[in-house]
Write a protein that binds this DNA or RNA. Structure first.
Lengths: 203, 203
DNA sequence: TCAGTTAGGGTACTTGCCGTACCGTAATGG
DNA sequence: CCATTACGGTACGGCAAGTACCCTAACTGA
């Protein structure tokens, strides 16, 4: 016996079923966003039912986060030899991510997690620490080249550009940030910040 | 005839009814947050029914935004004579706002508006432009005192501190940001940024 | 003053989705 | 080969958004 999709009647269990559920949830997430991620649809798409889902995840949000994790792409740290170009490239990558449908998903998940540190932590790999690493890498090279002050190797300083960019998405409803904005952030904020430190400590 | 709350049986219309609805919605928002803002409860609390609400606002989100606007407090720009203290005070005000129940409401509303520029614009008065003004004011005074470079009078530069603080709330689930973080933002990012500009234009 | 019009009030209903419960049965492991 | 576990099917209960009607109070202007 096979169903209409040709799925064998063989009953899946354990990892195989979990894989099918996550895959279906990820597909729903990309097609319809988090708002369209309903338990019924995921179950139907995975060829199973809600029991199997609730046995693995406590609710819709947890499933959404788990499904998102397999969609998130990792950042590729550039190495152009110029801090300005490296920073712009990182911002452009971030801009592409945030302005893609996946960016909307991530924003919805962050909002749904809304202060639940436990769940937020599972997203932080993609939105927090995983973001800081490439910036510190790029900035470290710039420091070695003398393009930036060593004091700038500070997580908050290093990631300030991408935080400012994210603000564009949160406050403006911009579907995508124009390249001007990225250039502005780099030239008006980021480069002056990482270069011009240690000027006059006490004013 | 009066109902159990003592409301006169006189049927309210127009502005009076709208006021009652907004007032009820604002109360629900403060007590139960945006998640607890249901049309039925607002209608019951206002002593009316959902018809009157839907005749004025297209949906729950629009009502939530309208109700939020009457809860939002305006920023009081400090003038301590020191940019560092002014900036810290502005950050502390922002920190109080974001960490209050109202902050959670604002975050939920921003998320629910999620890219709808039209609705987002109605919140922008509270989260965007209204934020920039006091920072530019404070920074303008600092420039006059010689505490900051004139080039720093740029909206993106002037508001960078508060944007970084907001990031703490979005990424970490922190209910409130420790004062250390505010000091860190001011000393490690903001002051170096607004002071140390115009160092070496071409590197 | 008195129709005629507008806008509230009351209520019931449809739809959608989360989360739960129950039961029969296939898969698995000893 | 049987006991146990986990999946499939299905049916609910609950809640909230949004819609549809109908009745009636409040306003409007001739």
């Amino acid at each position: 016996m096979t169903d209409s999709a040709g799925r064998p009647a063989r009953r899946r269990r354990g990892a195989a079923l979990e894989e099918a559920i996550l895959s279906a949830a990820a597909a729903e997430l990309t097609e319809s966003g988090y708002a369209g991620l309903t338990m019924d649809r995921v179950a139907a798409r995975a060829g199973t039912n809600k029991n199997a889902i609730y046995r693995r995840w406590p609710g819709r949000l947890a499933l959404g986060i788990a499904a998102y994790r397999r969609l998130a792409t990792t950042v590729q740290p550039p190495d152009t030899g110029s801090l300005r170009e490296d920073a712009l490239e990182l911002l452009r990558q971030a801009n592409r991510t945030w302005s893609s449908p996946l960016g909307a998903v991530l924003r919805d998940l962050l909002a749904a997690a809304g202060g639940t540190a436990e769940l937020l932590g599972q997203l932080q790999d993609q939105s927090g620490d995983a973001v800081a690493a490439p910036w510190l890498l790029v900035l470290g090279r710039a420091v070695a080249r003398g393009e930036a002050a060593p004091e700038a190797l500070h997580p908050r300083v290093a990631t300030s550009a991408v935080v400012l960019l994210r603000n564009e998405f949160v406050v403006r409803g911009a579907p995508t940030a124009p390249d001007d904005v990225l250039v502005d952030i780099v030239d008006e904020v980021y480069l002056p910040l990482v270069r011009g430190r240690g000027l006059a400590p006490d004013v």
